[in-house]
């Protein structure tokens, strides 16, 4: 029980469950699920489907934050990905085929990777501070997305494309399945190989890790590419959910949600130890918060105050846990039992 209380993940999980319980109190059938058109239907499914892009972006953000960086450009990359894919589909010769959808998605992902390489180049090679380097793309990137769509919303009607964000497979939303796959990939790549340890080392003490022979430049470059990749895929989800690309508004402020999710999940913005599971829980807390606002019928004027109070409560809950966790990097060694001295 004590180790459960000291676990960093416990309090965010408690907060998430408390929010879900609050919803249940206000609406008796909140947790109810039923089948609709061959897939599960219910508020929980909505949380999974609508939260998938945020979770995905937050995963990428976790690794960036772990290297003591930050990526503010994810919102712009979301917009660019959606803009490129929908513009391609709209201007292609066969706008509703699977091949068109596949090519569009592939182009968007490649664009995301290129932008990640750019961010990584600025931060790791030139040494610009991450917040400013990604601020440049955040500003210019949205302009690029608007340039691609001409400032208008580009609607498409391609069922294959739509399935990325709004489709279902095995009764669950495809978007959450994609996110789960990326999560497993990231977890395996970072925890089963040395990559995770290297990322943490670079974040905790860049100088020491350089002296230890770690190629910090490559590590930092990789995490920014990964973050951009996550943002591009999330961009595909967001635009395919409404089968339209809205370069003006897609992904607006999603970077704040992602960073908030990362911090709620227990990763420190000062870099170092990170927790992918914590981030996932944090992202779902944010999504559930939005759902709670709708369930409780909180008027739009008061929504932000409500969100502020919940965020603060979650952090305060975490605080003693955070303080304890900081003091104990590993449990105290077990002292040998006192030997009875025979008198």
């Amino acid at each position: 029980m004590k180790s459960l209380l000291k676990n960093r993940l416990t309090w965010p999980l408690v907060a998430l469950l408390a929010l879900l319980a609050l919803n249940q109190v206000f609406r008796a059938d909140f947790l109810a699920l039923r089948m609709q058109d061959g897939h599960l239907y219910g508020s929980l499914i909505d949380i999974l489907r609508n939260g998938a892009p945020t979770v995905l972006i937050a995963l990428g953000m976790t690794l960036v934050v772990a290297t003591r960086g930050i990526d503010l450009s994810v919102g712009a990359i979301v917009a660019i990905a959606g803009a490129i894919s929908c513009s391609y589909i709209a201007s292609s010769s066969d706008p509703s085929s699977l091949a068109t959808a596949g090519t569009a998605a592939a182009i968007a992902v490649v664009a995301g990777l290129a932008l990640g390489v750019w961010n990584g180049f600025l931060v790791s090679v030139i040494g610009v501070q991450p917040i400013i380097a990604t601020l440049v793309l955040m500003t210019a990137g949205r302009g690029v997305a608007q340039l691609v769509t001409g400032g208008q919303i580009v609607s498409v009607s391609n069922d294959h494309y739509k399935s990325i964000g709004a489709g279902y497979a095995f009764t669950l939303p495809i978007s959450i399945l994609i996110t789960a796959a990326v999560f497993v990939l990231a977890a395996v790549l970072t925890r089963r190989t040395a990559l995770g340890t290297l990322i943490e080392a670079v974040g905790i003490n860049p100088v020491a890790s350089r002296l230890a022979g770690i190629r910090a430049r490559n590590i930092i470059w990789i995490v920014y590419v990964f973050s951009a990749l996550c943002a591009a895929i999330a961009g595909l989800m967001i635009s395919s959910n409404v089968t339209a690309a809205d370069a003006n508004n897609a992904g607006l402020y999603i970077e704040m949600d992602a960073i908030l999710a990362v911090v709620i999940g227990g990763t420190s913005l000062a870099g170092g130890r990170y927790s992918l599971v914590g981030t996932v829980i944090g992202a779902f807390i944010i999504q559930t918060l939005t759902t709670t606002v709708y369930t409780l019928g909180i008027p739009p004027e008061v929504t932000l105050v409500f969100k502020a109070l919940v965020v603060l409560s979650v952090c305060l809950l975490q605080a003693p846990a955070a303080r304890n966790a900081l003091r104990r990097f590993r449990p105290a060694p077990k002292l040998p039992a006192k030997e009875k001295v025979a008198i």
Partner: peptide, 9 residues
């Protein structure tokens, strides 16, 4: 509007 953003960036 969008070239404005690009130029600022």
């Amino acid at each position: 509007s969008w070239w404005t953003k690009i130029v600022i960036g």
